[in-house]
Design a protein around this nucleic acid. Structure first.
Lengths: 162, 162
DNA sequence: AGTGAAACATAAACGGG
DNA sequence: CCCGTTTATGTTTCACT
């Protein structure tokens, strides 16, 4: 963490980040009231956090189940893939059903979160993915945590665990 | 998908959803220009999508690596957990490092995405989690896809796969 | 469901401390 | 680095279609 970024993350910076994680459409004025700053001051701080790359963007969160994608699954692709990995890294973004994709250590080279409209749709997706390695599919039953808000606290493991 | 919701998801509705997934801070006026509607009309449509639950919220996306959480990992907890699962479902939201947590089918009862500040921090987290079952940890090396924008197309598997 | 205009609120730009 | 003011934009309400 550069000194540059550390300077932005004082108490006020964290309060702004937290507020924007909870509701990204809050006005600068509303944000200012929460943190005790004027709207222009807030606007400047947020612009700097955007420029520094701390804030990567603002996104509406959509209920996939409600709009016709009732099944969410975690799909892992294991098997040594060799050069097929770099190929997959470029094709993954083109598979519409893949909401998230991670290249990870360990036996499973790839872990993905996917959303599909039916079991048949899931089957066809698995077929398409099995070209790249052995596919393991786990259907999501429930999600106790979806998008945890990151706070200053998240960074602070207990004293003896840093 | 109820008829109620289907009515909101015409061409314009999808365009608005897409725009808000890309930039949740766009003004109603700016959105209106994109979709060829007046600002009040856009405000109404969005309010209805919020009320229907299609839009669950608006969140700032934070770069975890930049703010002191350089390690992201996918953690799975396997092992039959029996009644310990329901216990975990309530404690998971209290573990600050857990960004997402899913209860899934298959051998691994739980899949989580976590962010930590160091290897030592990761170790301590794994220790805390191992109470609930056998823990498998995969460190994220890269993320070819992080938050895919859901479009109408996502819903439309090829003809013979519906 | 959508428009256009008016009243109101918020944002951006700029100067001052 | 923050505040306050001014000018430009954006939001909301409402009468009308």
């Amino acid at each position: 963490m550069t000194a540059d970024i550390e300077r932005l993350l004082d108490e006020t910076g964290w309060q702004l980040l937290q507020a924007l994680q909870e509701n990204a459409r809050l006005s600068f004025q509303a944000l200012g009231q929460r943190v005790g700053l004027s709207a222009p001051a807030v606007a400047e701080r947020i612009r700097r956090m955007e420029d520094a790359g701390i804030i990567k963007g603002y996104r509406a969160e959509i209920d996939t189940a409600l709009i016709g994608l009732p099944i969410t699954a975690i799909v892992r692709i294991s098997t040594p893939m060799g050069e097929r990995y770099s190929q997959f890294a470029t094709t993954a973004p083109e598979i519409a059903e893949v909401l998230e994709c991670y290249h990870v250590t360990g036996n499973d080279a790839l872990v993905m979160k996917v959303a599909v409209s039916s079991v048949k749709h899931l089957e066809s997706l698995i077929d398409r993915l099995s070209v790249y390695g052995q596919v393991t599919t786990s259907i999501v039953l429930s999600a106790p945590v979806t998008h945890r808000t990151i706070t200053r606290q998240t960074l602070q493991p207990p004293e003896d665990e840093r």
